[in-house]
Design a binder for these strands. Sequence first.
DNA 1: ATTGCCAAGTTGTATATACAAGCTCGACCA
DNA 2: TGGTCGAGCTTGTATATACAACTTGGCAAT
Lengths: 256, 256
Amino acid sequence: MSATVKPRYQQLKDMIIERISSGELRPADRVPSENELVELMKVSRMTANRALRELTDEGYVTRMAGRGTYVSDFRAKSHLLEVHNIADEITRRGHQHSCKVLRQSRQRSRGKIAGALHVEQGVDLFHLLLVHYENGMPIQVEDRHVVADFAPDCLSQDFRTITPSAYLTKISPLQEAEQVVRAVQPNAAVRRRLRMADDEPSLVVIRRTWSHGRPVTFARLHHPGNRYELTGHYSPPGTPKSATGNVVELEIYDHE
Amino acid sequence: MSATVKPRYQQLKDMIIERISSGELRPADRVPSENELVELMKVSRMTANRALRELTDEGYVTRMAGRGTYVSDFRAKSHLLEVHNIADEITRRGHQHSCKVLRQSRQRSRGKIAGALHVEQGVDLFHLLLVHYENGMPIQVEDRHVVADFAPDCLSQDFRTITPSAYLTKISPLQEAEQVVRAVQPNAAVRRRLRMADDEPSLVVIRRTWSHGRPVTFARLHHPGNRYELTGHYSPPGTPKSATGNVVELEIYDHE
DNA sequence: ATTGCCAAGTTGTATATACAAGCTCGACCA
DNA sequence: TGGTCGAGCTTGTATATACAACTTGGCAAT
């Protein structure tokens, strides 16, 4: 680790973050204006502007033209959880990912599925039912519907070599998504496919993905509760990546 | 909605995003350099620089000094899930939040808890055990440990009026967090506190929060699986907020 | 043939300057 | 008294310029 000097705008950001973090600047307090920073810190206004603008993007401060810059109210901040693509997640663990295709068929949309995908009853959909394995152990049942005209060659894909998620993002990458995570008692079919114990709950991720302003796919991802968990690490944007070290085993249970 | 012209740097961003989204620019393709954008789009280099820099922050492109700018590989992108503070979440639904404090005591750290908080055995901790209610129905059991010297006045707080999360972020807001989400069979105590059905699974969020480079609190949040879910909406930063409309009810189950 | 080095192109940062637009407050006027 | 307008602050954007650091490729010297 060399002691290279940080850029000036980053020093400004660090200084302001430190003043917030230490409690010297509290939520709704006024942050020095760009011109004040110019004098205080001997920088140009564009440099001060960049620092304050990035702090705005990162949620630390709020700016109003004509008023000034004020410390944000953090209590509203959400914690973020990353939900990875299952195949990437497995290979990143150094394990082997494999996949069995149970169904890959064309369907007419109906009922709730049609509603979720914002299409009329009877519109062509593709239905995919896959089981993903990690070193041979089933880890996810993927039950997915895809709007047919978004991915016309869906039936000719070999989803053992490319996951539906990767295939769909290849077609049109920049997407919005809604997600729901639930703990449920799975039905018998899912329980059997995932080789789950009798009373084992399932962690379910439901995801609807949008592209070019319309829903294009709707997936229900079942995981065995005893062998799967969602993990996330949240640090404010702009923070050095390795600040907190590795993920640590976090045990759930003590007796109350 | 007035038809005010977008700023020039935003037009640049939109243009590049559109070229990526349409498939004209694919992952690993080269994006026009700043100087090329200066000529093509008749802007100054600083404006082109801002556009490309923000696209970098938003994950669309990757830049390398001396090499150029290249379209990112989206397959690696994670979906994000927001995990809200329980009290905010309830009040945002227009419901009434209340809270019962079951335990608020000083403890010596030991075992796994000490390890998770990176402190020696025997260091002072506070132990909090709360139940959060939404319109009178229990919705979360919060089992939390706090490093004592981070929050010395923890025992004198009234956590019926301020949640531990809000209290702790008030002390020192800018924090990193690790989170794990699991589906588990809760023990009898949790099941009783949350008035859960016999075979109902529990959605558990385990969160360790850091401040000034060290862990300061460690919380296990149990929720009843039949009455609680995590929801999230992900759109790339910089996208207009209301692009996809409201959250829609997403049903879990069809028969296979 | 290999090595070394330099030129050209790229991103990254920093400054000085300029103008537009929004907000506040006080001076001024009717 | 009440209202209006403008001075002076703020942020937001845009440009021109400069230099540093990095990468690549080709050329020259060894």
